[in-house]
Design a binder for these strands. Structure first.
Length: 775
DNA sequence: CAGTGAGCGAGCTTCCGCTTGACTT
C-alpha cells in the first residue's frame, strides 16, 4: 500500500501526475465535487443561519467509498484539487466525506502539470483555507436560494416545470433584449460615394478605388454632387504613409476556443467541448475548461523552439498575456497542445481540425508582431471642396499572420484596402467612374451560441464548465431556439457618373440572413417579462459582479458568509411572498383589437397548451372562444387578421368515400380528419388553403406509407404485427410495442415468436416518465 | 396524440459548478 494518496479532480490529470511522482504516491481523482446540497428540498436551514445540508452526491457514493479505503491505508493524504473557490471546497468536502484526520491531510496546489511544479508543490503544503471554502458555500447557497425560490414561483404563475437562476435567466434576458432591439431598429440610409480611376499597376491596366469620407443623406444631394464632379480634374494632393503593427491574440480559454471554433469551423459550443474533452483525454491538449491565458514556462520554451525551427528566429516573440475577463480564477493554464512540436495528430476530421486551430493559436501567440505600412492618399477634385481618400495597406513583415488570423463576428468587408499602385503628389488621375450607392444602417446581429458565451464572460456570469450546459438548458426549457433568419430582399438606389453622363438604377440585395442564431420563444419572452418586472435586482446585468465582490471579501475573511446571505435573503424572500400573493397568473396577455363580428376583445396569450388567441373576456357571461396558434406564429408577431383566421377551424372542406373531411389545428399542428383518423398537414402547406383534392392526396399518402410499414401480419391474430418504424423494425401488439432482439431477422418471425418476445420481461415496454439515474 | 383553456388536487418539476461516462427510444 502506498504511503501517500494524492487526490485531484480529473482522472486524466491523475494519470499524468502519477508518472511524475513515482511509486510512493498513489494518485486518484474525485471526479469533481463529491458533496452537494440535499436535492429533495431547499437544502438550506434558513432559520438557523443558512446552514447548508450537504450530502454525498448519489453518483459519487462509489468514488467516496473507494477513496475512503485508500485514505485509511495512507499515511498522508494530499489534497491537490484546483486552486480556486470550488477546488478549495472540494478539498474540504473530501475531508468531511472521507472522514479524514486533519493531521494527516496536506493541501497542495499547482498551476501547471510539470514535474518541477508538482514536486515544488509537495515541498510547500498548506492547510485548507476555510475563508475560501466559506466563499464557495455562500456562492452555492445563494444560487440554491435564487433557483429554488424563483422556479416554483414560475410554476405557479406561468407554467409548471420552468426554471430560473442567477445565470440562465440573465442569458435569456440578453437574447430577448437583443431581439427587441432588432425589432425596434429604425433603418435609415445614406449615400456612399466611391470613385474609380484607371491606373497602371506593374505595367498592367488596373483600377484605383477612393471613397469620400462623408456620406450624403439624400439621393438629391448625391446626384447634385455627382453632377458637380462631371467635368472635374482629379489630382493626388497628399500621400501619407505610416508604419503600424498588429499583435497576435492570446492563447485560447474555453470561451475564446468556443468562439473561434464556431466562427472558423462552424462547431456548436457543445460539439467543441466534446471534441476538446476527447483531445484532453488522449493527452493531446491541456485542460479545456479554463479562464486563464497563461502558458507554462515549459510551453513557452517549446513554442520558442518550434517557431525557430519552422520559421526562423526572427519570428519568435515570447509574451505573457494578462486576463481581461471579470471574475477569472485562473486555476489552470490556457488551452494548448501538450506537445507543441506536434503540428498534427491522429484522429477523426473534427478532432484534427480543432487540434490544428489550438496549435495555430498557441504558436501565433508567441510569434512576432506583424509590421504593416498604412497609406492614405488624398485626392483633390477641381470643382468641389470635398476630397477623396484611397487607402492602402502593405505587409512589411508577416510575423504571426503567417499562421493565424483571428476572425470577428460581423462580416462587413468590402473595403478595397490592399497594395496601392505607385503614385506621386501632383499626379493627375485618369477618371473612370463615380458611384453613389444607397447604404442602410444595420441592426445588431442576433447571438450565436458562441457570441452569447462571449457576452456572458464579459458580464462575469457563468464559468468555463457551465457555458455549454447553460446554453443547452435555456434551449431545453424552450426559452430560446436556434434557427436561421431567412432575411429579406430590398431595393437600393445606385447612381453612376460615367463619361459625363449620370444614370440612375434601382438594384436589389439580400439582407438580414443569419444562420444558426438564438431567437427567444414566446415562453422565453413572457418568463423574462415576469422576472424583470418582479425581480429586476437579480435580472440586473451587474448582479453577479456585485455578489462576486462580496464573495471575494468573504474569501479574504473581511465578511461573514451567512451574514451576507442574510442581507440578500430577507428582501428577496419577501419579494417572493409578495409576488406570490399579489400577482395573478402571468400569461403575457396582449389585446390585439376588436373582433368585427361580435364586437368583443381579441387577446393573444400563453395558455396551458401554448400560445393561443381568445375572443371575449374571461369575465363575460358568455364563455370566451379559444384557438391555438399555428406553429410558425408567435404572440409577438401575430396580427388581428391572422388571429381571427384561426377561428375558421375546424372546418369541413368536402367529403371522400362518403365521409366528411375536416381540417383542424391541434396540439401537434394542423391536421386533416377523415373517418376518425388524423393526417397531419405538412409544414409548407397553408391549412386554410387545403382543398378536398389535397386532403385526399394526404390521406392516400399516409395509407400507402402505413401499408409499406407492415413487414408481417398474422391472420390468426390481427392485433399482432411486425412493423417498420423510425428506429428500425419492431413488434406491435395492440397498443404496446416491443423491440426485436439482436440477430433476429424480422421477416422470419412467426406469430409464436412475437408472443414469446413480448412476454420476455426484458423487452417490456418502458414506462413513459421514468427518471434516469439522476445525478 | 388531435373537442383542451374555469377549478379542484396529488405529485412532479427547479439552481450553479466541479467532473466523466451510459445509452438509445
Amino acid at each position: 500500500m502506498s504511503k501517500n494518496l494524492v487526490i485531484v479532480e480529473s482522472p486524466a490529470k491523475a494519470k499524468t501526475i502519477e508518472r511524475f511522482l513515482g511509486k510512493d504516491f498513489l494518485v486518484k481523482s474525485s471526479f469533481g465535487h463529491v458533496m452537494d446540497l440535499s436535492k429533495k428540498d431547499l437544502g438550506v436551514d434558513i432559520e438557523n443561519g443558512f446552514i447548508p445540508e450537504y450530502e454525498v452526491s448519489t453518483d459519487k457514493k462509489k468514488v467516496v467509498t473507494d477513496l475512503k479505503k485508500l485514505a485509511k491505508a495512507a499515511e498522508t493524504v494530499w489534497l491537490a484539487t484546483d486552486e480556486d473557490r470550488e477546488g478549495e471546497a472540494i478539498s474540504w468536502h473530501l475531508v468531511n466525506a472521507l472522514k479524514l484526520d486533519e493531521s494527516k491531510v496536506k493541501r497542495i496546489v499547482f498551476h501547471e502539470i510539470t514535474k518541477t511544479a508538482i514536486t515544488e508543490a509537495i515541498d510547500h503544503p498548506r492547510s485548507i483555507d476555510k475563508n475560501l471554502v466559506n466563499a464557495q458555500t455562500a456562492r452555492r447557497v445563494l444560487d440554491r436560494l435564487v433557483g429554488y425560490e424563483l422556479s416554483p414561483l414560475l410554476w405557479k404563475k406561468v407554467k409548471p416545470a420552468l426554471s430560473a437562476g442567477r445565470v440562465q435567466s440573465v442569458a435569456v434576458r440578453l437574447i430577448v433584449e437583443r431581439e427587441d432591439s432588432i425589432k425596434n431598429f429604425k433603418v435609415s440610409s445614406s449615400y456612399k460615394i466611391t470613385a474609380k480611376f484607371h491606373i497602371k499597376k506593374n505595367g498592367k491596366d488596373g483600377l484605383l478605388w477612393a471613397d469620400l469620407p462623408s456620406r450624403f443623406k439624400t439621393k438629391e444631394e448625391a446626384i447634385a454632387f455627382l453632377g458637380n464632379c462631371a467635368a472635374a480634374k482629379y489630382t493626388v494632393a497628399d500621400i501619407d504613409t505610416k508604419p503600424s503593427k498588429r499583435s497576435p491574440a492570446p492563447p485560447f480559454t474555453t470561451s475564446t476556443l468556443q468562439q473561434e471554433a464556431s466562427r472558423k469551423l462552424g462547431f456548436s459550443v457543445a460539439n467543441t467541448m466534446r471534441l476538446a474533452q476527447q483531445l484532453y483525454e488522449s493527452g493531446l491538449i491541456t485542460y479545456m475548461r479554463t479562464d486563464s491565458v497563461n502558458l507554462s514556462k515549459m510551453a513557452l520554451a517549446m513554442s520558442r523552439d518550434e517557431i525557430t525551427s519552422l520559421y526562423g528566429k526572427k519570428y519568435v516573440k515570447t509574451r505573457n498575456f494578462k486576463t481581461r475577463s471579470k471574475g477569472a480564477q485562473e486555476a489552470h493554464e490556457a488551452i494548448r497542445p501538450t506537445y507543441i512540436n506536434n503540428q498534427n495528430i491522429e484522429g477523426d476530421r473534427s478532432q484534427k481540425k480543432l487540434y490544428e486551430l489550438i496549435w495555430k493559436r498557441t504558436i501565433a501567440s508567441q510569434m512576432a508582431d506583424a509590421e504593416l505600412e498604412k497609406t492614405n492618399v488624398t485626392i483633390d477634385v477641381s470643382t468641389v471642396p470635398e476630397k477623396f481618400i484611397a487607402k492602402g495597406e502593405v505587409i512589411i513583415f508577416d510575423g504571426f499572420l503567417k499562421v493565424y488570423i483571428e476572425s470577428t463576428d460581423d462580416e462587413n468587408g468590402e473595403d478595397h484596402e490592399g497594395v496601392l499602385p505607385p503614385l506621386s503628389v501632383g499626379q493627375e488621375l485618369d477618371f473612370e467612374s463615380m458611384t453613389a450607392t444607397q447604404k442602410f444602417t444595420q441592426a445588431l446581429l442576433r447571438f450565436t451560441e458562441a457570441s452569447l458565451v462571449k457576452k456572458m464572460e464579459e458580464l462575469g456570469i457563468g464559468r468555463p464548465s457551465t457555458y455549454a450546459p447553460t446554453i443547452s438548458t435555456i434551449q431545453k426549457r424552450e426559452y430560446v431556439e436556434k434557427k436561421n433568419s431567412e432575411g429579406f430582399t430590398r431595393d437600393y438606389n445606385q447612381i453612376v457618373l460615367k463619361s459625363g453622363n449620370i444614370t440612375e438604377a434601382v438594384k436589389s440585395e439580400k439582407a438580414g440572413f443569419e444562420k444558426n442564431k438564438l431567437f427567444p420563444t414566446d415562453l422565453g419572452i413572457i418568463v423574462n417579462q415576469f422576472l424583470v418586472q418582479y425581480f429586476d435586482n437579480i435580472l440586473d446585468y451587474n448582479f453577479t459582479a456585485r455578489v462576486e465582490k462580496e464573495f471575494d471579501e468573504i474569501a479574504q475573511g473581511k465578511k461573514v458568509w451567512n451574514e451576507m446571505i442574510g442581507e440578500f435573503y430577507q428582501p428577496f424572500h419577501s419579494r417572493i411572498e409578495d409576488t406570490q400573493e399579489k400577482s395573478r397568473k402571468f400569461s403575457g396577455e396582449k389585446l390585439l383589437g376588436i373582433d368585427p363580428k361580435s364586437g368583443k376583445n381579441v387577446f393573444v396569450k400563453l395558455g396551458k397548451y401554448g400560445p393561443m388567441v381568445q375572443i371575449g373576456d374571461t369575465s363575460d357571461e358568455e364563455k370566451p372562444r379559444f384557438a391555438g396558434l399555428k406553429k410558425e406564429q408567435s404572440i409577438d408577431g401575430i396580427s388581428l387578421e391572422e388571429a381571427l383566421e384561426l377561428f375558421s377551424f375546424p372546418r369541413q372542406i368536402g367529403s371522400y368515400e362518403d365521409e366528411e373531411i375536416t381540417v383542424g389545428i391541434g396540439r401537434f399542428g394542423p391536421f386533416v380528419r377523415h373517418k376518425s383518423a388524423f393526417y397531419s398537414i405538412p409544414k409548407d402547406d397553408d391549412p386554410s388553403a387545403v382543398t378536398q383534392d389535397r386532403a385526399v392526396e394526404l390521406i392516400e399518402e399516409k395509407r400507402k406509407a402505413d401499408r409499406e410499414k407492415i413487414i408481417c401480419e398474422y391472420k390468426e391474430n390481427p392485433e399482432v404485427k411486425v412493423l417498420k418504424g423510425r428506429y428500425g423494425p419492431y413488434i406491435s401488439i395492440g397498443k404496446n410495442n416491443f423491440k426485436i432482439p439482436k440477430g433476429t431477422v424480422p421477416e422470419t418471425l412467426s406469430l409464436e415468436d412475437c408472443i414469446k418476445i413480448s412476454e420476455d420481461p426484458k423487452n417490456a415496454p418502458k414506462k413513459r416518465f421514468t427518471k434516469k439515474g439522476k445525478k
